[in-house]
Design a protein around this nucleic acid. Sequence first.
RNA 1: GCGCGGAUGCCCGAGUGGCCCAAGGGAUGCGCCUGCAAAGCGUAACAGCCGCGGGUUCAAAUCCCGCUCCGCGCUCCA
Length: 436
Amino acid sequence: MFSLYDTMSSSEVALPSVDEKKTIGMYVCGPTVYQRAHIGNARPYIVFAWMKNWLISQGYDVNFVHNITDINDKIYEHTPEGVLSTQHAIDMAKFYNADIASLGLPMPDAMPTVTDTMSQIITFIEQIIAAGHGYVAGEDVYFDVASSADYGKLSGTVDHETLGDGDAAHKKDPRDFALWKSAKPGEDTHWDSPWGKGRPGWHIECSAMAHSELGEAFEIHGGGNDLTFPHHENEVAQSTSVGYAFAKIWAHSGMLTLGGEKMSKSLGNIDPIHAAVERWGAETLLLMFLNSHWHSPVEYSQKTLQAAESRLNTLLEANATVKETEPPADEWAALETVLNKNFNTAEALALLHEWVNKGYKELAAKLLAMFGLGRVASPPQPPADVAAVAQQRLQAKADKDYEQADALRAQVEAAGWLLRDEVDGQVIIPTVQALR
RNA sequence: GCGCGGAUGCCCGAGUGGCCCAAGGGAUGCGCCUGCAAAGCGUAACAGCCGCGGGUUCAAAUCCCGCUCCGCGCUCCA
């Protein structure tokens, strides 16, 4: 039985068994595409892509939906002069797709955009108004927070005094948030609606995309924990206001920090995904995240990354040299225990080391593949020139020309391969560098 | 200030009542091995009690109370 820490109930909540419900709906908030995404943005995607893989191995079918917010104030602000904001959003969304694809995990089953969900969004707003939970003010539409009895239940944010931006004169309550915003001068995108030309508010977009893809109720709603309030709180208010059950589990992943502070575009302490992958490689980044619980923060530092890189080398070496052994029959069950209980990847990683060290190759390969680390189990073969130098080194060694042998070994190492003299001969072992 | 989540070895990081004198990894010392290495093996060091102070219990890193510190949120945010 798989369970996850759920923000709504502040406790671990179990998924229905495969017999009760085979298909799991999973919605994970994606980025607003106004500039290139950073490695912190990638964490929710990574965590839930792993989770999808795991649930499939447990017999479920998983529908992993990861949206692209392609309409937002930020996009207007960041669109270069002379470019349409829609084009800028398309460009950045393409980058995001390429960025997450480079991590080596399965792509989401659906990546809806706001633009493509516009008619459902408008219908949804009409439903909310009809249900008595939304109101029109001029050409804007707001959600009536006071009408929502459970507002604040998800985030525990109940302090009415401090909430709300207050500067929107026609709000009934400062906590009310926009469902539809009328078009402003200078904005190059707007859509027709019963309330005039405009665009949807941020929160309604996600509710609408989630329901449009996954129906009224689904199992897991994920996202970074910085979205708990107001974004997810507002999503809950919108969706439950029309009678939808919405998400069974609210899973909020921890922040990636840099210098002890959240990595964020507005703080500017960011490292873009593409730069991080280029510098460290996907495997090292994945191992860094794998080492800590999905719910905890992770510090993105030279030290953290280097430790992950060393770990990767250790796994590559062990995989290349340890002899295969038959594991105990119920060994896989140990993994199920740790992963099914709140998806404890750090424990799974400990188990992975054990398996690799003991030579349980098949099990290790299966686990590695699930975490997007398949190349650790099946690394590339050394290129012909490297193999040739390795061969020459063997000859030099046989000739007792050790100076030459050491030089050749250094040459191979510079190319990203280790040469080791085992009892049954020289072996060539890949390092992190060989995976690039 | 309020809400939520944390505080475990030199470092990262599991562990939520007894199997914990605390997993796994990273970084270390010595020996064997090796042409020299690396890995491996052996060995050493490695948290004297798991932020601090109380309490509950036959039993606590794990539960309760108070405190300190850190992160996130309080309508830009993964």
